[in-house]
Design a binder for these strands. Structure first.
Length: 944
RNA sequence: GCGCAUGUGGCGUAAUUGGUAGCCGCGCCAGACUUAGGAUCUGGUGCCGAGAGGCGUGGGGGUUCGAGUCCCUCCAUGCGCACCA
């Protein structure tokens, strides 16, 4: 590290080590960042997506978003806002539990250790978090309220006439008075209760508790049902759709299969429309909103029933049976040449003709036994099986064969499609493969070659639809279908209800117990339901979740508790509310606090949460809004996704079968195998040979083929990870350059939202800048040595220009350019040899959001008392910025030829005259010009 | 396949409304002070060319006096979704 002797003013050099320690200590002792409710000031809520504290600690990519949001938080304080800027930990989750299974250590213990390490790392960066509001999702005082919200979900249903959640009592009342008509669900419409049969009020009243409970589960927003789930055998748990990526678990990458299980779910589908529509009213990145729209996948269409044809093999009690399909193209109904059922469809068994039973069973078996991944991998392969049964075409009465095919998904629509091969690509391929008829009903395509699936053309061969365009025919067909009672207009969503139970230990217990097979929620006064201790974290021998190991854990010593726990996203779906009033033990946050802080004004976090966390976050907010608990319908007004910081790996090339390594430039001459090498033993990608030999046992005898006397490593930009030895830790950067330099450099790297590789090389630039800035203040013995004269016009121009630029840049989250503006300012003041207090002091406040430690030190060196973080942001003044002269670039036919300095108050005509009569003009344009364009204060363009 | 985003020097990047492309920083080159330092300061640095000059913002086309910026089209990269009827 540098030891400093400065010959010029015997000034003290910038010693970040003592400065940063001193002020971090001061802020902690003074409680500088504690936030109080203050009705007299406008509020601003800046929130970071809280981290899951992993064992690996933070790398330099993690704080990127935190630094940006911290700058905004500090800036807003200078601007007079009362800022809420909290931090906490998403502390339940799989990795801690996997570790517990391996080591037997309680996940609580490892989680606490990891949090301590995170906290230590975060503290060194100088964030302005109000730690008195810290939350940990695994604390009973916190998850008590997560459980409370679950109970409220259980006690609510969604009234789709009112488009909001209501207490379940309202529904019970309705059943007791009116019963339920499955054909006219009214307020109960949606795709949620399709398996439920009609009943009268009298029938309802005479039902057993168990029967009533089962019916209500079809409506509760938290409900228990038999459903197809994503089962991950390696993790031993069910996963939600967003936790499965390419048929593998998001955590760990284990295969996932489909399994039918009794399972707690949340009815997020009830909110599909509101989740979709309200996307138009939030300031979120277009990519996130688009991802959510796709995820919700709204599509409008109609259901249509095809009555089953009687046949010898079909039982008499199926004489009224039908196949119901969902289609978005009812206009093509006269082009149906077969109907395809999903292999899991409930009718498959009962309609199969005896001679085909064996083939059908085999097909169904192979289809259901496939993992999600296998199924996706074989998407292009066309498979199917005829059942031997026929249905009747609702309009023509023609018999239509019923097939089963894997391309039909059980979970979407009705699990059955009407196949129109002429106008749907999948149906087309299926028909081609099995030699089924292809009938054109929309003109304009070439159905001998491919399906004409676009919505253009005129209807043909279609009875009452003939001659209409597709756009006209769709509503016409729906009208007719509804009129004749064949089906009903319907909206379908790709969005599925969210699996909520996890067969795991380290999560919030679901506050439910069972009495005679009926689930009951705990009375809220008895919350929290504490996670019990268990002897092992594995499932029981009989395959029950780990909580089943807690044998004496029973409600009132008698009733079994639910043994699954909540998923990782439960606690993070409402945490922003808890920060508003973190210590409250009578409710999750007081009404006063929530009416003051309302929603998050700026939410900062990674784009990977587009369809997971951010979806549930919005869902729970809307639900709590419906209950009247909170004043807002959306959790976050503005969302920014910080880009990922990638690592730059270093590679060495071993000649295959030897222990000789060849430098990157020469590797083409050999057959080599690339190995990752720790970037710390290859500074600037030049390998330290000695350290490399010591690095790993098997490299001890390594030989090298060098270029220019050194070994050049290859490099690759990839994700920062331990296994690639390319992790850069913020602590090492801070130890060497200081936290302010780290903060500034992360911002200087480029636009916040962009992904970019980390390169420690460029850090000297900002480090030099901070030292140059420091030197302007001529610090001796902790005191600045400046004079009290007024600034020169040039100095004042630099100052005011910089205030304006930095302010504008922070307002639009362009932090890289604000750092750059500061560098320009420092360079210019240096050139002007500025030593005026009146010019330099405002810059200290301006710098404070970006480099708070240095700003605080300089603030005090200037003789101020109290913290700089409370100082008012300086104001820029136009009078120092107004120019009187401008050097006009004069271009001829769009190419700049020369420049002329002219007063800015000249009129267009005067400028034109002066320019045209100049000597330079005559040199470049001998003849009179065709046209002259003068843009005052910008440019002169002469056309010849 | 569909959707979203991004393409500018050796590198990270900048360019308020269509108005001087390359600010700031890294790296590199030359020098100063000094003498082992990863210090500081000064000058230079888009490409081709000796120069005049020409070329230049992923490629091609267009609008305009003028295009990195607007329009059309193609290409590349990244991310998301994907037999969703």
């Amino acid at each position: 590290m540098p030891t400093f002797v400065s010959p010029i003013w015997e000034a003290m050099e910038y010693d970040f080590r003592s400065i940063e320690a001193r002020w971090q200590d001061y802020w902690r002792k003074e409680g500088t960042y504690l936030t109080r409710q203050d009705q007299s000031r406008p509020k601003f809520y800046v929130l970071d997506m809280f981290p899951y504290p992993s064992g690996a600690g933070l790398h330099v990519g993690h704080p990127l978003g935190y630094i940006a949001s911290d700058i905004v938080a500090r800036y807003k304080r200078h601007k007079g806002f009362n800022v809420l800027h909290p931090m906490g930990f998403d502390a339940f989750g799989l990795p801690a539990e996997q570790y517990a299974i391996q080591t037997g250590q309680h996940p609580k213990l490892t989680t606490e250790q990891n949090i301590a390490r995170y906290r230590e790392q975060l503290d060194k960066i100088g964030f302005s978090f109000d730690w008195s509001r810290e939350i940990r999702t695994c604390n009973p005082e916190y998850y008590r309220w997560t459980q409370w919200i679950f109970i409220r979900l259980f006690q609510s249903w969604y009234n789709s006439e009112l488009q909001r959640a209501e207490p379940i009592e309202k529904l019970i009342e309705r059943f007791a008075n009116e019963g339920y008509d499955a054909t006219q669900p009214g307020a109960l419409s949606g795709n949620i209760e399709s398996e439920l049969h009609s009943f009268t009020a009298g029938e309802w009243q005479s039902m057993s508790e168990r029967e009533q409970s089962d019916i209500l589960l079809h409506f509760r927003l938290a409900y228990l049902s038999e459903a197809w789930v994503n089962w991950c055998p390696a993790l031993g748990t069910v996963l939600a759709n967003d936790e499965v990526i390419d048929g593998r678990s998001e955590r760990g990458g284990h295969p996932v299969e489909r399994k039918r299980m009794k399972q707690w779910s949340l009815r997020i589908t009830a909110y599909a429309d509101r989740l979709l529509d309200d996307l138009d009213h939030v300031e979120w990145p277009e990519s996130i909103r688009e991802a959510q729209r796709n995820w919700i996948g709204k599509s409008e269409g109609t259901t249509l029933r095809f009555a089953l044809e009687k046949a010898d093999h079909i039982a008499d009690d199926l004489s009224d049976a039908f196949v119901e399909v969902f289609t978005t193209r009812p206009d093509t109904v006269f082009g149906v040449s077969f109907v395809t059922l999903a292999p899991e469809h409930e009718l498959v068994q009962s309609i199969t003709r005896p001679d085909l039973r064996e083939a059908v069973n085999a097909y169904v078996l192979q289809a259901t036994n496939k993992t999600e991944r296998e199924r996706q991998a074989e998407v292009k392969k066309i498979t199917g099986q005829f059942t031997g049964a026929y249905v009747r075409h609702p309009f023509t009465g023609d018999p239509i064969p019923v097939w089963i095919g894997e391309y039909v998904l059980a979970g979407y629509g009705t699990g059955a499609v009407m196949a129109v091969p002429a106008h749907d690509q999948r149906d087309f391929l299926f028909a081609q493969h099995f030699g089924l008829p292809i009938k054109e009903v929309v003109s304009g395509g070439n159905i001998a070659e491919y399906a004409h699936a676009v919505k253009s053309g005129v209807m043909v061969n279609s009875d009452f639809l003939n001659g209409l365009t597709v756009i006209e025919a769709i509503p016409a067909a729906v009208r007719e279908i509804e009129l004749r009672g064949f089906g009903k207009g319907k909206i379908n969503y790709r969005l599925r209800d969210a699996a909520f139970g996890r067969q795991r230990y380290w999560g919030e217990p679901i506050p439910v117990y069972y009495q005679n097979g009926v689930p009951h929620v705990l009375p809220v006064e008895e919350l929290p339901l504490i996670l019990p201790e268990v002897d092992k974290y594995q499932p029981t021998e009989s395959g029950e979740p780990p909580l089943a190991r807690a044998e004496s854990w029973k409600y009132k010593g008698e009733f079994e508790f639910e043994t699954t726990t909540m998923p990782g996203w439960a606690g993070s779906s409402w945490y922003y509310l808890r920060y508003m009033d973190a210590g409250n033990d009578t409710c999750f946050a007081s009404t006063e606090a929530m009416n003051y802080w309302r929603e998050v004004d700026l939410y900062m976090g990674g784009a990977e949460h587009a369809t997971g966390h951010l979806m549930y976050f919005r869902f729970w907010t809307k639900f709590l809004f419906d209950l009247g608990c909170i004043p807002v319908n959306e959790p976050a007004r503005k969302l920014i996704n910080q880009g990922m910081i990638q690592g730059v790996s270093a590679l060495v090339y071993r000649i295959d079968g030897t222990n000789t390594f060849v430098s990157a430039g020469l590797r083409e001459q050999h057959h080599t195998i690339a190995h990752h090498v720790d970037i710390h033993i290859a500074p600037n990608h030049v390998l330290d040979l000695e350290q490399f030999r010591l690095w790993r046992e098997d490299f001890r005898d390594a030989q090298f083929i060098l270029e220019d006397g050194v070994y050049h490593c290859g490099s690759e930009v990839e994700k920062m990870s331990k296994s690639k030895y390319n992790v850069v830790n913020p602590d090492e950067i801070i130890a060497e350059y200081g936290a302010d330099t780290l903060r500034l450099y992360e911002m200087f790297l480029g636009p916040l939202e962009q992904s970019k590789p980390w390169s420690t090389q460029g850090i000297n630039g900002v480090s030099n800048f901070l030292r140059r800035f420091w030197r302007l203040f001529r610090i001796v013995d902790g005191k600045a040595n400046l004079n009290d004269a007024v600034g020169s016009p040039a100095e004042l121009k630099v100052l005011h220009k910089t205030i304006r630029k930095v302010e504008e840049d922070i307002e639009r989250f362009s932090f890289n350019t604000s750092v750059s503006a500061f560098m320009i300012c420092t360079n210019e003041l240096h050139d002007l040899k500025c030593d005026k207090r009146s010019v330099l002091e405002p810059l200290v406040v301006l710098l404070s959001p970006l480099a708070p430690h240095m700003a605080e030190e300089l603030w005090h060196a200037l003789g101020n008392t109290g913290t700089v973080t409370a100082a008012t942001f300086p104001k820029w003044d136009q009078q120092y910025l107004t120019e009187h002269e401008f050097e006009y670039p004069v271009s001829v036919n769009g190419k700049v030829r020369f420049k002329m300095k002219l007063p800015l108050d000249l009129s267009k005509e005067e400028v034109e005259q002066v320019v045209l009569s100049s000597d330079e003009m005559r040199r470049f344009v001998p003849d009179p010009p065709k046209k002259v364009i003068v843009v005052p204060g910008r440019i002169v363009n002469v056309v010849v």
